[in-house]
Amino acid sequence: MEKDFLDMIRQHNGIIYKVASFYADKENVLDDLYQEVVLNLWKSFPNFRKESTYSTWIYRIALNTCISFFRKSSRKPMYVELSPDLKVPSEDNSLYVNELYALINQLNKLERAIIFLYLEDRPYKEIADIMGITSTNVSTKINRIKEKLKKMSNN
């Protein structure tokens, strides 16, 4: 089982890393979030019944983990430090992209989840399943968030 799990993580590491970096507001929180997601995936792996694809299953767990994650202010030291390579890739982005990230960071966690899945080009039905809202509501929300981001950037 461990081998299958490791294979799955290797194949879908990009998803986990993207979700964690989307919700990380400081560099060291990225490590916490990444590990928390991996731990929750490991815990749920034996019960995965292939009712959905691996990627949908990982998106759900990763987003649930990041949205519900709350650290105490006196946090314990990190138990596994990620390699220096696995950090937020802000140096590679254009100024435009970084500015948009900064605006997205001002959205609440649920709106951020919808935007993340939108950026990942997931079908609206899948977004609705993961978020627990209707497909029509997904479309409405995305349009509203676009308007919100436009207003924020104009301000």
Partner: peptide, 18 residues
Amino acid sequence: VKDSMIKEMIANRNKGAF
């Protein structure tokens, strides 16, 4: 990501926040 890193993470499974 290295397998050894993932193995170390899941060895610490009781240290997760939840």
